[in-house]
Design a protein around this nucleic acid. Structure first.
Lengths: 214, 214
DNA sequence: CTTGACATAGAACTAATGTTCGGTAGAATC
DNA sequence: GATTCTACCGAACATTAGTTCTATGTCAAG
């Protein structure tokens, strides 16, 4: 934890000013705006203090860039850490789970925003909305959002979307590879696992996260 | 919904470039950066297109300000739109659900990051981790994160955390007020609702969102 | 064909912006 | 007392950056 308590008063003012400024204007301030806003006597002093703040890792600067100061704080979530995950379709028991088209765009209406901290570093994410209540044994209800990774390898014990070709239905289960058969374990601990022939199961994606908006 | 489909190709490129730029740099680009990044022939053309985009309300500009272009829409995640929600405890069937201390801080280890778009404008959020599998009928499993609002009024049909004083257990159910009794409806559609005396039920918070990290 | 609205280039202009540098004052160190 | 270090000031400087202006090209309507 970086110590912010023993900062010189002026640096504290600068930090405060920048935060408020960004909040109001969506853009960091210029040196001279900081000068006025934080009552610093000269631009060189601002520069001076900014260097100090940068050393203290309380902000980072893009050299020679106008408005090139970015608060790096620690409590706030970095915008880079957010991502839009497109909801590319619905997962229905009687159909294979959709996978994203190449050009599936994360437009506003059809996406969920989640923090990267919730899903690791995966890049190839997409989300499905669950239709019908056929996923009850995965503790998933109609309307829930399932965040999936397209490319991620599914390992023993991972929750995955599986299409069972013989039954013509898709389901979300924990998967265990047992030779020529798969053990599929419902997420619901009151239910028993069951087994399918590996040839009859298409794994369609690894589930990273389930979100239920109320 | 503003129509973005019939934009000239170059304006679309500009918009895309700005969005990506902001995502990477935390700061909007300059005119000349846009020129290069979106392959526009001259700065005046950028200016020209920006005016058009502003007319179309796809962005807004601060005149004569360096990097004074801000994407206005409706789609992108604004850093302001993110929040840390502290996980203040565990919800266990046999105990009342914890509510946040005044000084419960959203430190990194014990919080979930969610987008405001997922939970509305509520400010008084906290999260609980579910312990044990006593919430199965709410389709909630051990380890799931329940995001709750402390102050939000619970209305008919809302999902809420309820402590049943006579049974000495807490539960998550949809609540319906029916005079002196409450109807509690499990989230699981295969289960029947049941009724409790209103005097034996303490409503402890409104559930906004359930998250299952896999 | 002409006209006029729209799109484009390129350059010039002014203002803003980040940086640097010489110099001062006070406190701490030797 | 000399030296050194930090905090500070003011001005100058070199770019950067937003704007504007003129000239040119395109294309459909009159």
């Amino acid at each position: 934890m970086t110590n912010t308590g023993n900062l010189p008063e002026s640096q504290r003012r600068i930090l405060d000013f920048i935060m408020h400024y960004v909040e109001q204007n969506d853009v960091p301030p210029t040196i001279r705006e900081i000068q006025k806003g934080a009552s610093i006597s000269s631009t060189s002093m601002v520069s001076y203090h900014l260097k100090a703040l940068e050393r203290a890792q309380l902000l980072s600067r893009y050299e020679r860039r106008s408005r090139g100061v970015v608060i790096t704080h620690a409590g706030r979530v970095n915008p880079r850490e957010m991502m839009n995950v497109p909801i590319v379709g619905r997962i229905v028991a009687s159909q294979p789970a959709p996978t994203p088209d190449a050009d599936a765009l994360a437009d506003a209406e059809n996406s969920v925003q989640i923090a990267r901290s919730m899903v690791g570093n995966a890049e190839d994410l997409y989300a499905l909305e669950v239709q019908g209540n056929s996923m009850i044994d995965a503790l998933i209800n109609e309307g829930d959002i399932v965040v999936m990774s397209k490319g991620a390898e599914v390992r023993n014990g991972d929750l995955a979307a599986i299409f069972l070709t013989d039954r013509n239905e898709s389901t979300l289960k924990r998967v265990f590879f047992e030779g020529k058969r798969l053990k599929l374990k419902p997420e619901n601990p009151t239910m028993k696992p069951f087994y399918v022939d590996a040839r009859n199961a298409q794994i369609q994606g690894k589930v990273l996260c389930v979100i239920r908006r109320i």
